[in-house]
Amino acid sequence: MTAIFRLESRKRVRSSTVLVAVFALLSALYFSMFPGIQDEMDVFEEAFPEYMFELFGIEAIHTVEGFIAAEIYAFFWVLLVAIYFAYIGAGLIASDIQNRTMDLTLSNPVSRESVVLQKVAALWVPLVALNVGVSIIVYVGALVIGESFDPVSLAMAHLLSVPYLLVCAGIGLVLSVLIDHVRTARATALSIVFALWLVDSVSSVDPEYEWIGDLAPSRYYDPTAILVREEYALLDAGILLAVFLVLVAIAVFVFTRRDI
């Protein structure tokens, strides 16, 4: 039974392509800026207080790794792409219930568990498109301006982001089975993912409150550490993956028991 999986995969193609194109534009912008402002970055690093850098996950901004990690990954990937996944997750079930597609879907000999799992599995499309597309764009972009990225750390920056993005989708999915109105589900999911990111960022400024950020998924994925220091937090990725599986299990549990 792969009909739902195939249809859902197809539905993800367009927005994934658009997002890759957005990243291509962003990369073109930042890579073209980098040679011109590289020298000024030392000044920049001295001019701003430390917490500003911690707030936005910035270090070694005078290197291409540090610059791209700060500009593309620490913000756009960790927040924008995360919000995109939360948005998709929140639509998976709620939008079908709202427009009555779910009635027709469930008139087929397909279980509710299978419906949820096939829809989640279709997230492979944006995951593959974005990770493959953007890593190639960044790698080639660096070469074009005469710099280079370590392909291993670049690949790890993308690979270890997968569990993080899945957790964001999982947060959306749980809301999707709980909330009937798709717009409410999506807005709530976006707000939660944004709030968690903010909690992580702000709490990391003060060591006394840093533990609060342990609740935020973004605490377990640090692209700057991967790209600049080549630190691969495999355990953190494992934690995220486990949380994702728990979220999917919760969503299946709720969805199989509720009225539609």
Binding site: D96, N99, R100, T101, M102, D103, L104, S107, N108, P109, V110, S111
Partner: peptide
């Protein structure tokens, strides 16, 4: 779920 293989359903609101 198994019985639905032998069921045809035409809903009042068609959610295609």
């Amino acid at each position: 779920t198994a019985a639905k293989a032998d069921l045809g359903y035409l809903p009042d609101t068609l959610g295609f």
